[in-house]
């Protein structure tokens, strides 16, 4: 077990808005890896949309905000190769001509990691206690793969998930066509790319697809469901954190059974929460199971 450490979660704007369960899964995994987790409130987005649109001034302003918000933590962890890559690879490029800011950016870059590679490479995790009876294809998000070298780590942890069989996805390293603003600026090209991706996923015979970036997953899930596919799409963190029973897959209705407004027991049984729709994700009770039980 590595030394206890203070980790800050870089939530990412997509997880914040679309799928908080990925954030809670990340928190659970980080705690299992011996970290206490904080979520700095002054974070919004890593600034990548501005950076990749050529708006360097706004990208820098947002980067400065992130650098300040995440100062002092041992580690900064994002459940996304794209956002972690932005901080780790592109912040130093962004401030290449400002020595003082560059030093800060480099210092942050050194502490910043993509979630799964952090668990394996930095915290020495080699298995998880999770159960998920599926045959799943794994798509390598471009930034995680090519900027951060995330390739083998997710496969290693997924190999320890009970009931899970990984199906080799041909073209796993080819972009799904999301690309941030790319999918809005060039929708027909993006469509062709995600159509090819969906066809390749279907050809594997897998009943599920996983990835480490919510951008790719929203794109792939949206295409699969438009094609009428019932393939289950999830962020890898939910599977590794064994939270698949608590939340429906991406793009799936919460509960196919009747009772669309069934009462969800709020974690601490607080009053006034009962009317919440079952679609709305409720975080599991904290603290998570004691670290020792996980045995890695």
């Amino acid at each position: 077990m590595p030394e206890p450490a203070r980790a800050a979660l870089l939530v990412t704007c997509l997880v914040d808005l679309f799928r908080p369960s990925v954030g809670f899964a990340a928190v659970k995994l980080l705690e299992q890896a011996g970290c206490t987790v904080d979520v700095p409130r002054a974070q919004t987005c890593c600034g990548q949309p501005a950076y990749n649109s050529g708006d360097r001034a706004d990208a820098k302003a947002i980067a400065r905000q992130i650098i300040a918000a995440f100062a002092g933590y041992d580690y900064v962890v994002a459940p996304s190769g794209s956002c972690a890559g932005m901080v780790k690879v592109h912040y130093p490029e962004l401030f290449a001509d400002e020595p003082a800011a560059l030093a800060q950016a480099q210092e942050l870059a050194a502490r910043t990691h993509e979630l799964v590679s952090f668990l394996v490479d930095v915290r020495g995790m080699d298995r998880v206690a999770a159960h998920w009876p599926h045959t799943a294809a794994y798509h390598d998000g471009c930034s995680g793969l090519r900027e951060l070298g995330v390739k083998e780590q997710p496969r290693r942890l997924l190999a320890s998930v009970e009931g899970l069989t990984l199906a080799e996805l041909p073209g796993a390293e080819v972009c799904c066509g999301f690309g941030g603003t790319f999918c809005i600026k060039y929708p027909e090209i993006s469509d062709k790319m995600v159509t090819d991706k969906a066809a390749e996923i279907a050809a594997t015979g897998a009943d599920a697809v996983l990835a480490g970036d919510l951008g790719c997953l929203l794109n792939i899930a949206g295409k699969l469901s438009r094609r009428g596919s019932s393939t289950e799409v999830r962020h890898i963190a939910e599977v590794l954190a064994d939270m698949t029973a608590e939340v429906p897959p991406i793009g799936a209705p919460a509960n196919p059974s009747p009772a669309p407004r069934e009462r969800v027991a709020s974690p601490q049984g607080e009053p006034g929460e009962g009317a919440r729709s079952s679609r709305q994700f409720a975080p599991s009770p904290r603290p998570s199971p004691p670290v020792g039980e996980r045995g890695f």
Binding site: V11, V15, D16, L17, F18, R19, P20, S21, G23, F24, V39, R41, C183, I184, P187, E188, S190, D191, V194, L218, N219, A221, G222, K223, S225, R226, V247, I250, G251, R276, S277, R279, Q280, F281, A282, P283
Partner: peptide, 21 residues
């Protein structure tokens, strides 16, 4: 541009920051 060719998965209903707070 997005929904012309693919569905948009619905958000879970609360932002992470509000749930965390």
């Amino acid at each position: 541009g997005w929904t012309a060719v693919r569905d948009m998965p619905a958000p879970q209903g609360r932002s992470f920051q509000s749930l965390w707070t």
